[in-house]
Computed example of a mutant assay.
Amino acid sequence: MLFTSLPLKNLTLSNRIVVSPMCQYSAENGYANHWHLTHLGQFAIGRAGAVIQEATAISPEGRISYGDLGIWEDEQITMYKNITQFIKSQGSIPGIQLAHAGRKASTDKPWISRKQFLPNETHGWQTLAPSAIPYHEKEHPPKALSLEEIKSLIQDFRKAAKRAVTAGYQIIEIHAAHGYLIHQFLSPLVNKRTDIYGGAFENRIRFLLEIVQEIQQELQENHSLWVRISATDWAENGWDLEQSIALCKELKNLGVEVIDVSSGGAVREQQIDVHAGYQVPFAEKIKAETGMLSGTVGLITSATQAEEILDKQQADFVLIGRAFLKDPHLVYSWAEELKEPITWAPQYARAK
């Protein structure tokens, strides 16, 4: 299963191993550079079915850190075209994850510190959120978004999607997981609004649904719309699997093709039961209840483990992060492990 193709409505992945978005914190003012081309290009050389670019901010304030990629202005498109063209040249499908970090923005690069900068500090800015509740009680509170600001952000997502299409990305993934802005609207532990974007389930999902509707206006026949969600907050009275299933049914009705299922990140008090494949049951349940194509993530470290997930129909494909950092040509290694024939890049074939 792992090395069979995955047909989507308008695209076909050559195999079911996808590079998960992984922030590199290496951009300058949101602009990609040779690091990003090399980083993403190596996975395409290694024959990943699709390569999803890291969380790419739809506005400057939407970056997690000052080193994050952005797609809020047209001039940023040029380098992205180089990246997508190279990925396609290797037979892989380029994807981009459109994101806004919300209250978890304005931080340092993680290998330097976990500090969140104050708005008046170098590398800092005022964070935004559905409600003025900081992620950590000692952090500077985010600004609660006004209705006008919410509508403006929805349009920012649409404009970002339009730029992504121009840049050549074929998979457009909306980042609604890991405690970032859209997830902040979804979670009742974070969203304390009393207007049409807060309170009842139908109100908390409104922001995401409106973003999906706007982005759909920019997509063409050779694109696929994905959404990454956190299936649960891992916290009492928070966002949970039942709500995720209900949300996915709404997303399916709006033409979202794939659900990329992760979990956690909304609140610091989360209690995650971490073990090999610990997030797979969420993808399995969502797939079974909605009939949507689902991808699963989280401590998937071997070909046999990935193959078992697909054989049991727990997911339609796997997204791999850290293991790809350790071995950018992971697909070659897994093919050898499973004794599956695979066509190598001719420049590298002598290594077989």
Score class of each variant (00 low, 15 high):
T4I: 07
T4V: 04
S5C: 01
L6D: 13
N15D: 02
N15S: 12
R16D: 15
V18E: 00
C23Y: 04
Q24E: 13
Q24R: 11
T38A: 15
H39D: 03
F43C: 03
R47Y: 01
R47T: 05
A48E: 08
A48I: 07
G49Y: 06
A50F: 00
I52D: 01
T56P: 08
S65D: 05
G70Y: 04
G70E: 13
I71V: 09
I71G: 06
D74S: 14
Q76G: 00
Y80R: 00
Y80F: 14
N82E: 09
I96G: 03
I96V: 12
L98Q: 06
H100G: 02
H100R: 08
A101M: 12
G102P: 04
G102E: 07
R103Q: 00
R103T: 01
R103K: 14
K104C: 03
K104N: 12
P110K: 09
S113P: 08
F117I: 02
L118R: 09
N120M: 14
G124S: 01
W125I: 06
L128P: 00
A132K: 12
Y135Q: 10
K138M: 11
S146I: 01
L147T: 11
L147H: 02
I150P: 03
I150E: 05
S152Y: 13
Q155P: 01
D156N: 13
A160F: 00
A161D: 05
K162C: 10
A164W: 00
Y169I: 05
A176T: 02
L181K: 05
I182W: 05
K192L: 11
K192N: 03
R193E: 11
T194A: 09
D195Q: 07
Y197K: 12
F201T: 02
L209K: 13
E210Y: 14
Q213L: 14
E218K: 09
H223M: 11
V227P: 10
A231W: 12
D233I: 05
W234P: 08
D240P: 15
A246M: 10
K249M: 01
K252A: 05
S263W: 03
S263G: 12
G265D: 04
A266F: 04
H275P: 08
V280I: 02
P281F: 00
F282G: 00
A283G: 07
G291K: 08
M292D: 07
T296N: 04
T296Y: 00
L299P: 12
I300M: 07
S302D: 03
E307M: 09
E308C: 05
I309A: 08
D311W: 10
Q314M: 11
A315P: 06
F324H: 13
K326D: 13
P328R: 09
L330D: 08
S333K: 05
L338F: 06
K339P: 10
E340N: 11
I342N: 12
T343M: 13
T343P: 08
A345S: 10
Y348I: 14
A349Y: 05
